[in-house]
């Protein structure tokens, strides 16, 4: 297995303006993981837990406060020259959450896909370009070449997200970061999209970072899962192991909140009337800074958080 991307003890502190003072906010508190070719890692957590900040640091939209991001062993946070950055962006691409906001409404699909092809392969002939465009549509299962002349408003959310994916794949990246790629799509389309990600990951040997708040979808795409809370990874390991034997309370909280059609709220309210108190308590506890990870099973680790700190946090 080749390690493509390695994230090492990433820290990110933002200064928030509060009145006249600036208050530090620790968005990332020591995040580490690695991505392998042909494998996917699901980064799971609620909004505000730092999962998108992680993506933004990796894509160099933010400078990290501390820590390193290594691509093939080379630290990319030190890349400065235009050329080096361009090469890095060719190896690493991103698909964003909002399929409506991430396409220019005044431009056709052809424009969106031609740009990355031209930017990274300036010598491309017109006929080759057309071939590549059609191949890209084929790849993301948008079939009909007539799609090339459509505009974003003429397409459904699912089709637009496929165009976004094609745009990202146009430069043949090694690493793909997908930030909540299905959360704005209808449930019925979500599955097709996840299957497409899985297929492409295998075919193109992509290292995929799948960022989501929905732990139930992680197993359709990702071999490994990391659960994040308040800027720390609280539990990580093979997806099946994390889901079947969750050992951090926050992971259990996430899993227990997945809508279960077989149990009505009438039953749940009777059985777990203290759900909200427990959820608050777990969130409080999970906020404590952790030092090291405890081994749960092969490759499966859980963050150890100081109990004294938990008590302090509760007071």
């Amino acid at each position: 297995m080749t390690t493509l991307l390695q994230v090492d003890n990433l820290q990110q502190t933002f200064l928030l303006q509060q009145g006249l003072r600036k208050v530090p906010f620790e968005a990332l508190r020591g995040v580490s993981f690695s991505l392998q070719a042909g494998r996917a890692l699901a980064l799971v957590g609620e909004s505000g837990c730092g999962k998108s900040t992680t993506a933004r640091v990796i894509t160099r939209m933010h400078e990290p406060t501390a820590g390193r991001v290594l691509l093939h062993g080379q630290d990319v946070t030190e890349l400065k020259s235009r050329r080096a950055l361009k090469a890095y962006r060719k190896s690493l691409q991103m698909v964003f959450q909002d399929p409506f906001g991430s396409l220019n409404p005044t431009r056709s699909v052809r424009h969106h896909l031609t740009r990355p092809l031209r930017l990274h392969q300036p010598a491309l002939k017109r006929r080759q370009l057309q071939q590549q465009l059609e191949a890209l549509l084929e790849l993301v299962e948008l079939g009909d070449p007539g799609m090339l002349d459509k505009y974003p408003h003429q397409m459904s959310g699912g089709q637009r997200q496929r165009v976004n994916l094609a745009r990202a794949l146009a430069v043949e990246p090694e690493v793909l970061i997908a930030d909540e790629p299905t959360s704005m799509l209808d449930v019925s389309i979500r599955m097709d999209m996840l299957n497409l990600f899985r297929k492409l990951k295998a075919e193109r040997q992509l290292g995929l970072l799948y960022i989501t708040h929905d732990i139930a979808t992680a197993q359709y795409v990702a071999e490994d899962t990391a659960v994040m809370y308040a800027g720390q990874i609280v539990e990580y390991g093979p997806t099946a192991s994390v889901i079947d034997h969750p050992s951090h309370d926050y992971t259990r909280l996430l899993l227990s909140s997945v809508p279960d059609p077989t149990r009505s709220f009438a039953e749940l309210a009777a059985e777990e009337s203290d759900f909200r108190e427990r959820a608050d308590r777990i969130r409080q506890q999970s906020r404590a800074a952790g030092s090291d990870y405890e081994k749960v099973a092969e490759g499966h680790y859980c963050l150890r958080q100081a109990v004294t700190q938990q008590k302090e946090a509760l007071c």
Binding site: V187, S188, R190, M191, D214, I215, A216, T217, Q219, Y220, I243, D249, R252, L255, S256, V258, P259, D260, P261, T262, R263, R278, R281, I282, Q285, V307, Q310, K311, L314
Partner: peptide
């Protein structure tokens, strides 16, 4: 078709054990 598209089927009907520390911490 809509029913089939529901993710997380394997999680249904599961019950959860919570760590002891939560009660202890109170």
């Amino acid at each position: 078709q809509l029913l089939d598209a529901i993710p997380g089927r394997h999680l249904f009907g599961r019950t959860w054990q919570w760590n002891q520390t939560e009660e202890a911490a109170l």
